[in-house]
């Protein structure tokens, strides 16, 4: 079934909203009434129809608007896309993977036709119909990673594997939860996670790195991450923190429902075939509190999760100014009943 793509904004008048169907497919990340860091990796396999896991690379009703927002970010700050010179093979790997997955998952919107190294890519929602030579950079309007990630939802990092470590050596990062590709590019796994509290001491990163170094081709893995964002703003970059930071002081009891958003990242990791690099997809989903409470299970669970957060996480996720107001507002929807296991609506 064809997706009806919405015309909406992630800035200025913030007209982004989820349809009722899109709320039901939201990847709510909490499978219980509390939250703490864990390696929480699971196989990235297809899930049920009508969920965000129906396809391994997910496209939803926000696709066209999100791609327009990415283009705006890149016009202001081209350094949100960067790739170190040795990453060209991995760039082509990524282009292939994303074109294949989007064409297989959404054939009414995307078509990939291959004749040897002559490829034709049709992206109907964005009005693109390009023919190029796979492996020849000069036949695309820009580098292959930039080309395809201007046409795919979520942020994308490619990490190179060498010296028993993973290195952040390329990326398209315009929808991030407050980290800078420009600052972190070239860092290894432990270095780019340097600022994260608690998890280092818990051994989370040691275990995660060991796991990822052994990631196999054809067996992608995924995990959730989450935070909260005021207004449906995709570009919560540190570069622009002085522009969006003031939003955090605007939350009142009267506007929680509209302004406060749960921001979920479905992070999937894919071993790439030619380069042996790993593609790290950080697919961001936003849902405001009015939308969240339309699912009774989530309305009960989310305030309970917010109450149990360790102080370090409240600070690191930047929730300090509005967490209590949000809990108070959400508590109206929590009748104290037990919640069912798992993340999906009842």
């Amino acid at each position: 079934m064809a997706i009806a793509f919405k015309q909406e904004t992630f800035r200025d008048d913030f007209s982004y909203r989820n349809s009722a169907e899109n709320i039901r497919r939201f990847p709510f990340p909490f499978d219980r009434d509390e939250y703490m860091y864990a390696v929480n990796m699971e196989p990235h396999v297809k899930g049920q129809k009508g969920t965000a896991f129906e396809n391994l690379i997910d496209i939803d009703e926000h696709y066209v608007a999100e791609m327009r927002d990415r283009a705006l970010v890149l016009k202001e700050d081209p350094l949100r896309y960067q790739a170190l010179p040795h990453m060209m093979a991995a760039q082509w790997d990524t282009l292939e993977l994303l074109m294949e997955e989007q064409a297989v998952g959404f054939p009414e919107h995307f078509t990939l036709a291959r004749n040897g190294d002559q490829w034709r890519w049709i992206n109907r929602p964005l009005g693109i119909d390009d023919t190029f030579t796979f492996g020849d950079r000069s036949t695309l309007p820009c580098e292959p990673l930039e080309y395809i990630t201007r046409q795919a939802q979520g942020d994308f990092c490619i990490v190179d594997q060498r010296d028993g470590n993973l290195w952040m050596d390329a990326g398209m990062v315009t929808t991030q939860a407050d980290w800078s590709l420009d600052f972190d590019i070239g860092m290894n796994f432990m270095e780019w996670h340097g600022p994260v509290p608690l998890a280092h001491q818990m051994g989370v990163f040691d275990r995660a790195l060991k796991f990822l170094l052994n990631l196999q081709q054809g067996k992608p893995t995924r995990r959730f991450n989450w935070t909260m964002t005021i207004n449906p703003r995709l570009d919560t970059s540190p570069e622009n923190y002085h522009k969006w930071g003031p939003d955090r002081a605007t939350v009142t009891t009267g506007n929680v429902g509209d302004k406060v958003h749960l921001r979920v990242e479905v992070q999937s990791l894919w071993r790439l075939p030619r380069s042996n690099a790993i593609l790290f997809v950080i697919r961001c989903y936003l849902m405001n509190m009015n939308e969240l409470v339309t699912v009774p299970k989530w309305a009960r669970r989310f305030p309970r999760v917010l109450r149990t957060l360790p102080p370090e996480l409240i600070d690191y996720k930047g929730l300090t100014r509005y967490r209590q107001t949000t809990i108070d507002w959400l508590s109206k929807f929590d009748d104290g009943e037990p919640t069912s296991p798992g993340t999906f609506p009842d």
Binding site: S180, F183, D184, I185, G186, M187, E191, G194, P195, P238, Y241, H242, G245, P246, R248, A249, R321
Partner: peptide, 27 residues
């Protein structure tokens, strides 16, 4: 000219620590 907090996060590629506006939420 923005007032910057010096974060304990270092980039070898830039040879620098990261500075982030400290009063962004309440100028």
């Amino acid at each position: 000219g923005l007032p910057l907090l010096v974060r304990d996060h270092y980039s070898r590629r830039l040879g620098a620590f990261q500075g982030v506006n400290i009063d962004a939420e309440e100028p």
